[in-house]
Nucleic acid binder design. Structure first.
Length: 502
RNA sequence: GGGCUGCUAGCUCAAUGGCAGAGCUGAGGACUUUUAAUCCUUAGGUUCGGGGUUCGAAUCCCCGGCGGCCCA
């Protein structure tokens, strides 16, 4: 402790007038023995319950029942001797509170008018009635502050700016019902996915987020440091290599829903941290996973919308029912180009095609990578209806089993919905010798400066050398599933997305 | 990474190089049945930050910050 006292912070300095006013109301509440932040307030019923219970209360009658309700004051209509306020609960349910001179008395009514602002949380005790205009109300005998709001609420009738909505999500949640709906929808979807997997006898596990090596995907990782181990650690870019270790150990159906971290660009479909479902099933393949993933998404759609037809926030309806289209990667490229392109098409020819369609080519790309880039350039935007794109080149799928009939291809599909990649699945590569060769090729890429290349994971190879059953595996972005079901941008599906510091 | 675009009162927005404004919110007043209540009065500004051009800059130019949209 120093001799010099920290100067008392005087928040009255430099504050906007409206915040000064609210602080002085807080002071007046204290001075009058009305705690602005009491530990407890009376609360007998939820607003939602009262709306349901008294839905049929006739206009201009009393119920005879006394209740205590709580809510945030979102509208006030103050009169001389009779005041109205609209209270809103956390679930969005609203109820009118009425304060009349003859019920609460002059002092309490005066306090209500002079000390309560829009945005305050209050508790109101009184009889449930229906007003002369038929509005279900609590006619107050008494009221109490539950929490004084020191900041004014944004105007309820104009849309909040995009930036404020994201930076101050708590305000967004208060004023915008759709913001709360998204939170509910997301919880419904995640719960539906878990139930879908539990029903099919999958076990949920949690695997390391802090990893000594990064692997399981092609992405640039975040790096952090362990003081205890005196070594750098990576935030995981995927749980894949650990879930496969679990399959080696005999956990034959396993999944994880958790966050991945990728140190890459942020845009309307990419967030640095994003939630992902990964699932592995022994003795299955990419065809089995294709059916299951469709079923899981359809079950999630049903949980959210009650049917396979989901309605986006702009009103468009998307039908996710039935079987979904499937195309092959090279078939899609061929029909987009009007030229026959196969896994056998050589690099020079692919480069000529790329030039023809004005795709700029990184000289480090091999033919497989270039084919994938051609596909993304030419086809993905048109894949609005759910479509499985199958059979990717070996070059870009180092963890995937070789195709059963076509050399050079792997058994991998990507699922596209709404023009973006929603999910992926493989027949997993389980041959430890080939896996080592694939890792070796990746390490050459890394040595060549590819920051997204996978690292050679000896412990993973050791696990595989004990024998991993033939398996199907899948991964799906939870945030993107929300996007597909709601039509929202990724930052709307994440409650508190990363934003630049103010 | 590139292009376009925005940042003004607590919130949403005007102000076309010439006095920085409106609605809601706030403050004061009227009103015992309102529904985004209404009516009267009224307060509120580092125009994102810095530099420049100009008699004069919210406005034009340059640099920086933070968003949005499109493209790669």
């Amino acid at each position: 402790m120093t001799e010099q006292n920290t100067p008392a912070i005087d928040p009255a300095e430099d504050l906007p007038e409206q915040m000064r006013v609210r602080r002085s109301k807080r002071d007046r509440l204290l001075a009058e023995g009305l705690p602005p932040y009491p530990v407890e307030v009376p609360r007998t019923d939820e607003i939602t319950e009262i709306r349901a219970r008294y839905a049929d209360l006739p206009t201009d009658t009393g119920s005879g029942d006394k209740v205590s309700v709580t809510g945030r004051v979102i509208f006030v209509r103050n009169g001389g001797k009779l005041c109205f306020a609209t209270l809103r609960a956390g679930d969005g349910a609203e109820l009118q509170a009425m304060f009349s001179l003859d019920k609460v008395g002059e002092k309490s009514l005066g306090d209500w008018k002079s000390l309560v602002d829009l945005g305050d949380l209050v508790a109101v005790t009184g009889e449930v009635i229906a007003s002369r205009r038929g509005e279900l109300s609590v006619l107050a005998d008494s009221w109490a502050m539950s929490a004084k709001a020191l900041r004014p609420l944004p105007v309820a009738h104009k849309p909040l700016s995009e930036e404020t909505r994201v930076r101050q999500r708590y305000v967004d949640l208060i004023v915008r019902p759709q913001a709360r709906d998204v939170v509910r929808t997301r919880a419904t979807v995640v719960r539906s996915l878990r139930e879908s997997l539990f029903r099919r006898n999958y076990l949920e596990v949690e695997t390391p987020m802090l990893q000594l090596l990064h692997g399981g995907a092609a992405a640039r990782p975040f790096v952090t440091h362990s003081n205890a181990l005196d070594t750098d650690l990576y935030l995981r870019i995927a749980p894949e290599l650990f879930l496969k270790r679990a399959v080696v150990g005999g956990i034959e159906r396993v999944f994880e829903i958790n966050r991945n971290f990728r140190n890459e660009g942020m845009d309307s479909t990419h967030s640095p941290e994003f939630a992902m479902l990964e699932a592995y099933q022994a003795y299955a393949d990419y065809n089995v996973m294709q059916t299951q993933v469709r079923e899981w998404i359809q079950e999630a759609a049903s949980a959210v919308a009650g049917s396979h037809v989901v309605t986006h926030q702009d009103g468009t309806e998307v039908d996710l029912g039935g079987e979904w289209a499937q195309i092959t990667l090279f078939g899609a490229i061929s029909s987009a180009l009007g030229e026959e392109v196969t896994i056998g098409t050589d690099l020079a020819q692919l480069q000529r095609y790329a030039e023809k369609v004005q795709l700029s080519v990184d000289p480090k790309w091999g033919p497989g990578k270039l084919a994938e880039e051609l596909f993304e350039h030419l086809v993905t935007d048109s894949l609005v209806q759910p479509t499985f794109v199958r059979d990717f080149p070996e070059e870009t799928a180092p963890l995937t089993a070789p195709h059963r009939t076509t050399p050079g291809l792997t058994e991998k599909w990507d699922l596209y919905v709404g023009g973006f990649e929603l999910a992926t699945a493989y027949s997993e590569l389980v041959d430890p010798v080939i896996q080592r060769e694939r890792f070796h090729a990746q390490s050459l890429l890394a040595a060549g400066g590819d920051a997204e290349a996978m690292q050679l994971d000896e412990d993973f190879l050791r696990a595989m050398e004990y024998g991993m059953p033939p398996s199907g595996g899948m991964g799906m972005g939870i945030d993107r599933l929300l996007m597909a079901l709601t039509g929202l941008g990724i930052r709307e599906t994440i409650l508190f997305p990363l934003v630049r510091p103010e």
